[in-house]
Nucleic acid binder design. Structure first.
Lengths: 337, 337
DNA sequence: TTGTAAGCGTTATCAC
DNA sequence: GTGATAACGCTTACAA
């Protein structure tokens, strides 16, 4: 039954301090009903035995783990850590540990790992529009929030930017620079992010009387490669676009990188605008004009929503929408006829 | 005592299936001593009740959690995710979840969170030379491995590259290109990584009869900013260097970015060499000449070491050293007199 | 203020 | 092949 070398338990401490086991528990948790003298004695005994309360025991008893699962995809995509890191910090401040759940676990599998009491709550950061898992998990009574992505059929707590509005900002900017042949490098239409950014961009262009023909749309994933491939494809057109809206910064930077390879100078020969404002966007080599999402704010409010729901599972569901903001750097420029 | 809506337990399943609770446990874990018929019945009952075995109960009983803590710093530094992601994957394959432990928890605090049975093992990825925590944790009987960084006073399982040798490769390359005024942007001397890379570089230069005077050394952190600041400082010299070795790729890319700002073309006007070969290094904009560490290999063997130790805590400690390899891209070039 | 004792949900050891 | 039953280490009524 027991494998590893058994370490001191509260019973050992109790024995050493000459008190009951429950007093040890109380003393070490700072229960005010314990006398100063007793607490002192218990703490000494605990220290001398190198006693550390075992989590599993506490978890079982309190039915809480002080752990939160973040369902996250490939950390290697520079976007995700920019959201995970501030969430992790906020969780730490709230006394929660962060546990990484692979985004590949679906339904059955996912439920087993999320609704088994191993976490007090879950944050989904890359839900696809059709995903059932978040709803299923929530239905099991596990506090759940969505960040960055949304779901249609759901009433879960959500923290997102106004993607539609942000994309409109980009369309306005590009049009105001005099561009007419405008392209877009988009992501999977199975994500709310891509869908809303595309819709906002397309609608606002239309408002200005400019179309977004399918030959000027390149659709890929949320990756650097997509940006790069998108540029290759768009530059191969008989009449390449003069401005390109990229679904997000990672893609935009892939585009910038490919433009560099093709000998183009972004901001002069071609306009590139991203979305997110990840930290790389401000690097001198890129100096990417983009839409600031306030990722830290996004992350913080997601965590806040989760912590509130953990505290009060029956509170009303909230959708927090943060306002995007255009960040003008050097990758945009006027259209030269 | 119990807060959240109580969900089905193995006892409920037992009742529903008309068997004992222990049979439920056995059946669901695939114990071969359970008859096919019984297993079927139990599985049905479990499914219909939406039963998922609760981890805390199991953890307490088995004294294992199938969780591993990765002590990690800021995920926003592009290097770390490149190591964390493959470790996370390898851990997943081994049936372990990854839990992120802030690198700020030291000694007391760290012990409380790592030696409390909440993880089956710990991986330290940014240990400082003087750190006691890894040893303390290991002394508590918690399987521990170091990856990327080493400790002097320790016999822990370790997975590292040959940093000294890798830096020698860089020195050889730079010297062979005809450079004589050679600089280095280094990191905190409190890390084995920086110490060994610096030593290897310096020694090999000396071997070629070339000094590394302190005015040509810039020391900072492992960040993009350090690379950028390093370049500013080095270019401000009356006689700037013609080649610069950067402690790692993140720093090198910061340097590249700053050079771009100063109007220099790496590979032509100045040689920059990094270390690690993170994925960004191969991006077209950077095309950084660097030393490949085999981060995935590094990660995999760290996890392998950990899993082996969890299986057999008394096995001999191992230090796995992977061989670095020069990757020639475009940020280096001959010295023009 | 402290002790006693009853869980918490699982696994594992015995019998049968 | 299956069922009792005893852990596992902790928190928390309830009693004293």
């Amino acid at each position: 039954m027991n494998r590893r070398r058994r370490s001191a338990t509260s019973i050992d401490v109790a024995r050493a301090a000459g008190v009951s086991q429950s007093t040890v528990s109380r003393a070490l948790r700072g229960d005010p009903s314990v006398s100063a003298a007793t607490r002192e004695r218990v703490e000494e005994a605990a220290a001398s035995l190198g006693y550390v309360p075992m989590e599993s025991g506490r978890n079982l008893s309190t039915r809480a783990t002080k752990r939160v699962g973040i369902v996250a995809p490939d950390l290697t995509n520079q976007f995700y850590p920019e959201l995970i890191e501030p969430m992790r910090r906020a969780l730490d401040r709230g006394g929660f540990r962060t546990i990484l759940i692979p985004a590949t676990d679906q339904d059955e599998q996912g439920l087993r790992s999320l609704a088994n009491g191993s976490v007090d709550g879950v944050i989904f950061m890359n839900a696809l529009l059709g995903d059932q898992l978040p709803n299923l998990v929530a239905a099991r009574g596990v506090p759940t929030v969505l960040v960055n992505r949304e779901l249609d059929q759901t009433s879960l707590d959500t923290s997102v930017v106004d993607n539609y509005g942000g994309a409109q900002l980009v369309a306005d900017l590009i049009v105001s620079l005099g561009h007419e042949r405008i392209a877009a490098i988009l992501g999977p239409s199975s994500t709310s992010t891509s869908r809303d950014r595309e819709a906002g961009f397309r609608m606002q262009l239309a408002d200005h009387g400019i179309p977004l023909p399918s030959e000027l749309m390149f659709r890929g994933s949320f990756s650097h490669e997509t940006g790069s491939q998108g540029i290759d494809a768009l530059l191969a057109l008989r009449k390449p676009p003069t401005a390109i809206f990229c679904l997000n910064d990672v893609v935009a930077i892939g585009a910038l990188s490919a433009l560099h390879r093709h000998g183009y100078t972004p901001g002069k020969d071609v306009t590139v605008v991203g979305f997110d404002d990840i930290s790389m966007a401000s690097w001198d080599v890129f100096s990417l004009t983009t839409v600031r999402c306030g990722l830290v704010t996004l992350a913080k409010s997601a965590v806040e929503l989760l912590i509130k729901r953990i505290a009060d599972p029956s509170r009303e569901h909230t959708r927090v929408v943060t306002a995007p903001e255009l960040v003008l750097r050097s990758s945009h420029g006027p259209h030269h006829r």
